[in-house]
């Protein structure tokens, strides 16, 4: 599990790649939270185009990041989600809270 961050003009993009399970989430959870703290973004994108597998550990990461960004008045959304992770988001009903869009 890898996270690559780009920050420009109040916009933080977090590009995740690999398999997002509990093992992978432990590696990147703190990095993501620290980056949000450092940059205080107005817009935060999580790009999941390269996440080939995700379980409920991914939901925890997205929710935690969402709460943090929301608390500083920013917006967060998740994009480029592949089929399997999208099925997990759908089963949990996360799209009722956070904007999530599928890969095109």
């Amino acid at each position: 599990m890898k996270a690559v961050f780009t920050y420009d003009n109040n916009r933080l993009t977090i590009a995740l790649s690999g398999e997002l399970d509990h093992h992978g989430a432990r590696d990147i959870m703190d990095k993501i939270m620290n980056k949000i703290d450092d940059t205080l973004p107005r817009d935060c994108h999580i790009d999941m185009g390269k996440v080939s597998f995700m379980d409920s550990s991914g939901i925890a990461i997205v929710l935690k990041a969402y709460k943090k960004v929301n608390a500083i008045g920013g917006r967060l959304w998740v994009e480029n989600v592949q089929k399997q992770p999208m099925h997990v988001f759908d089963a949990a009903g996360i799209d009722r809270i956070i904007g999530i869009s599928a890969t095109v």
Partner: peptide, 15 residues
């Protein structure tokens, strides 16, 4: 804690 979503069983039931 907040490292877990609490959605594991919900997803298992759904699948």
């Amino acid at each position: 804690g907040d490292e877990r979503s609490g959605m594991g069983f919900t997803i298992m039931e759904s699948f």
